[in-house]
């Protein structure tokens, strides 16, 4: 298949689809596919405001949430999304399972697959784990975060949230500040925002900026004022406290002083700039509390939108369970 399928015979039967049977990363999506997911998410969002927050679309489908990393937010979000579509969900957390007994990812997956799930949502600490799974399993694979590589549904819900407030992504200046080197959210967001025509600025200490970042089509700087100047969107990434041990920066206090998003710094952005954070936040490290709780923060909207976006992804991929296998 060479592109998204669009057949418009009768408007009520307009169809489009995703090319791949899996969602492994934003890197593999075309801009039209991203738009399709966001448009579908809009329709899905409405379901959350009904008295009965359920539609039968994925009735009888089984979705396995295989989480090798602890996660409350993402896993809950996926679970709610799956249930709203009437799918049967199974949660497997690595701590309580055969993984502890030394079973490899591939073997765990094959064992699960023998029970014929339709989709597997995988979160794993190793980059590329979802690619490995997609070669081993026939089920559709959704990447819920693999190592430092990608977290595609996070970028999609970020884009959805931006679109809600700003109407479109093209032409916006988006500043992303934080641990760029280790962040899968960053990579996914860079792919998505550049594909959709946004002007992306990434900012952090040089120790946390990946090599060759300019090849990703973004501006990179360690000067926060430059990054935030006239920004429409300011996105803060979590600083993992363990990074201090790798000598990436001397202390959290210093990080906050140089890169923390305070109200003063924020004044350089556009007056209606929105503040985003994938969570969980380290208040007083990457973001000041007044900013996190301020009027332009859309952090809680991001969480709410996560369910709608994940419903859209599940819906679009579930029908593709019969597609030819794409790698």
């Amino acid at each position: 298949m060479s592109g998204p399928v669009i057949a418009r015979v009768d408007e009520t039967l307009a169809v489009t689809s995703l090319r791949s049977k899996n969602l492994l990363g934003i890197a593999d999506l075309a801009p039209e596919e991203i738009s399709l997911i966001l448009d579908t998410a809009e329709a899905m969002k409405e379901i959350g405001s009904r008295p009965i927050k359920k539609v039968p679309a994925l009735r009888g489908k089984t979705v396995v949430n295989l989480f090798y990393e602890p996660s409350t937010r993402t896993r809950t979000s996926f679970e709610i999304a799956e249930k709203r579509l009437s799918a049967d969900t199974l949660n497997i957390a690595s701590v309580s399972s055969s993984v502890v007994k030394g079973e490899t990812l591939a073997d765990t997956a094959l064992n699960i697959e023998a029970m014929q799930p339709d989709m597997i949502v995988l979160r794993h600490p190793s980059s590329g784990a979802c690619h490995l799974l997609s070669r081993v399993c026939r089920s559709a694979i959704i990447n819920a975060g693999d190592g430092m590589h990608e977290h595609p549904t996070q970028a999609l819900l970020d884009a959805f949230t931006i679109r809600e407030r700003k109407k479109q992504l093209a032409g916006l200046k988006v500043a992303i500040v934080g641990d760029l080197l280790h962040s899968r959210v960053l990579r996914s967001n860079i792919h998505l925002l550049t594909k959709m025509g946004a002007d992306v600025w990434v900012c952090g200490p040089p120790t946390l900026i990946p090599t060759d970042i300019a090849r990703f089509g973004v501006h990179a700087t360690s000067a926060i004022d430059e990054a935030v100047a006239d920004a429409d969107v300011v996105m803060l990434l979590r600083i993992q406290l363990e990074r201090m041990e790798g000598a990436f920066f001397p202390s959290l206090r210093e990080y906050f002083n140089v890169f923390g998003m305070t109200e003063a710094r924020l004044r350089r952005a556009k007056p209606d700039a929105i503040i985003m954070h994938p969570g969980p936040m380290n208040r007083g490290v990457e973001i000041a509390s007044e900013v996190a709780d301020g009027p332009y923060s859309v952090i809680l909207d991001q969480v709410a939108n996560g369910v709608a976006v994940r419903m859209a992804v599940l819906y679009l991929l579930a029908g593709g369970a019969e597609h030819e296998t794409a790698t």
């Binding site: 590329g128 590589h149 990608e150 990579r187 090599t211 060759d212 990703f216």
Partner: peptide
Amino acid sequence: HEGYQAAMLGLRG
């Protein structure tokens, strides 16, 4: 190898 490919794929270089 620390470079663009590793950065894209999220691999430590």
